[in-house]
């Protein structure tokens, strides 16, 4: 394959789809989207009882527009982003360090495996009462709970990345008498980078879910708190709008990281 051809999902050269095919795709998806919305609206018209807990499309759009200018909503976004971002950063750094430690020898890994397997299978939200008891409904509690769960996928991914590094590359480097520093910069770091990327993606989506869940259940500030609050205040369109925002955030985050992974690690065989 030509080195210039951009590799597609299966490593094949991607042929750009003709414009007409693209247009047809947009039309079909658009028509289906309208049909979904139409069916939904029709159901609400036919059975007005549903409106007790389902908003109309108009109300939903209005609520979304209202949220866009609502400082309370934006401070919620900020709080969630802060907790999730902090949790993600700590998980990445801490998890990588633990992984490095585990990778020093198989003996270390064998010894720690049972403990790690146990700790990582504790359902994340199980620790909420503990967190509340020790730290109260604070961002600190939220970050702690996030890290307690999100750190494990990082540990495992990065560890596997290090361990599965093909020793042949290092042997080749050594046979050409490449220096230790150069080996780390040009072989170890790029070799581990794709698993680091995977770890980042897994941890990021987990962090967002945990942040929102903790906020809803433990009452720390953020989007999750707003969802519960809107429900109790019977502001249903706002509740739905916030849930949609969280979903869109999750998809956007995942897509952004995936596309970055594809760009950065295009040479890696698979980006899972």
């Amino acid at each position: 394959m030509s080195a210039l051809a951009e590799p597609g999902p299966e490593g094949r050269a991607v042929r750009p789809a003709p414009l007409s095919a693209w247009l047809r795709g947009v039309l079909i998806h658009g028509a289906f989207f309208l049909a979904v919305i139409g069916t939904y609206s029709l159901a609400l018209v036919l059975d007005p009882g549903l409106r007790r807990f389902l908003p109309t499309i108009g109300e939903l759009l209005q609520a979304l527009a209202g949220l866009a200018v609502d400082p309370q909503f934006w401070s919620g976004v900020g709080a969630t982003a802060k907790a999730a971002g902090l949790g993600l950063a700590i998980s990445m750094v801490g998890g990588s360090l633990v992984a490095l430690l585990l990778a020093t020898s198989t003996r270390v890994y064998d010894s720690a495996r049972f403990l790690i397997d146990f700790l990582r299978t504790i359902p994340p939200l199980a620790l909420i009462p503990v967190g509340l008891l020790l730290l109260g409904p604070t961002t600190r509690m939220e970050v702690t709970l996030i890290v307690a769960s999100a750190v494990w996928p990082v540990v495992l991914q990065v560890y596997y990345g290090i361990v599965h590094l093909d020793p042949k590359y290092l042997e080749t480097a050594r046979s050409y008498r490449v220096g230790r520093l150069l080996q780390i910069v040009f072989i170890v770091a790029p070799g581990v980078a794709p698993s680091f990327g995977t770890a980042f993606r897994l941890a990021a989506s987990m962090t967002l879910l945990l942040a929102v869940g903790t906020e809803l259940l433990a009452g720390s500030d953020g989007l999750g708190f707003l969802i519960g609050w809107y429900q109790q205040a019977r502001r249903l369109p706002e509740m739905y709008a916030t849930i949609i925002v969280v979903g869109v955030l999750g998809i956007a985050l995942n897509a952004a990281i995936r596309s970055a992974e594809r760009r950065l690690f295009a040479w890696a065989e698979e980006t899972r």
Binding site: I28, H29, F32, V36, F53, L125, S205, L208, L209, V212, G213, L216, L217, G224, I227, G228, Q231, Q232, M239, I243, V246, G247, V248, G250, I251, N254
Partner: peptide
């Protein structure tokens, strides 16, 4: 599948816990 897939992706991205009040 092509039609439904984006919606399934979206629903997967929703935090299940956020649906509790609902």
């Amino acid at each position: 599948n092509a039609l439904v897939n984006p919606y399934a992706q979206f629903l997967r991205a929703l935090p299940g816990v956020a649906l509790l009040p609902l």
